[in-house]
Simulated assay, not measured.
Amino acid sequence: MIRWINALLILCLSQAAVAVDIQPDTLYPQVQLDTSMGKIVVELDRTRAPITVDNFLTYVVKGHYDNTLFHRVIADFVVQGGGLNLKQEEKPYDAPIVNESGNGLSNSFGTIAMARDNEPHSATSQFYFNVGDNERLDPSSRRWGYAVFGEVAEGEEVLAAMAGVATEHNSKLDWPDFPIDEIILKKATLLPRK
């Protein structure tokens, strides 16, 4: 049953790749994130996390990440975004994807990974940057991990600045670690093939 569900998810993602150009033949596509604090370029690894990369790029090309908030910042841990609009409302998202955390990539500083709920196969649009070496987020024989699917190629200083912003408890959402001053992801762009 699980194999059938995985095959169905891969087929759906393949069809989504046809509907929008996510450079399916590019093994290491790059995405530029224009934020209110500067630009970050991430290089994605389709060889290790093909489902996760296709999912992320589909959201990028559809414009899902444009004008969203980085809503969770914990110094020396993570900077997370991809799910809230500028009114602090959750954006609609597509079906969850299969967890590819066992791909050999580690949650080390400067990598990008998928956020999820406690259920291991619950990642949708939210992602995070590791701003510390977070091996405890990697899979082990006792638990699922969080799927890393790329790394920062340019803009580590921007990411470091984001990780250092002041945060507070957001009473509207009842979430901790919310930046006091908004960090906006203004636009995410899939860069042309190299």
Rank of each mutant, 00 (worst) to 15 (best):
E89V: 02
P29E: 03
G81H: 09
L69I: 10
Q80T: 09
V61E: 08
Q23P: 00
E154N: 11
D25K: 08
S106R: 12
L27P: 03
K91T: 04
D181R: 10
Q32T: 14
A188G: 12
Y28R: 13
K87A: 08
Y65L: 11
G155F: 10
D21L: 08
L57R: 13
Y93A: 00
T111R: 11
M162K: 07
G155W: 15
L11F: 10
F109Y: 15
R48D: 02
M162E: 11
D66M: 06
F70H: 10
H64F: 07
R142F: 08
V41N: 09
A17Y: 06
F129G: 05
V158N: 14
V78Q: 07
P96E: 10
G104F: 07
E135Q: 00
I184S: 08
G132A: 02
V60Q: 14
I10N: 09
F127S: 01
F77K: 04
D181A: 14
A163I: 08
W4Q: 12
M114V: 09
L105E: 06
N107M: 01
S36P: 14
Q23K: 03
F127Y: 12
P139T: 06
E156C: 07
V158A: 07
A115C: 03
E168S: 12
L191I: 09
V78G: 03
V79E: 05
T47E: 15
L105W: 09
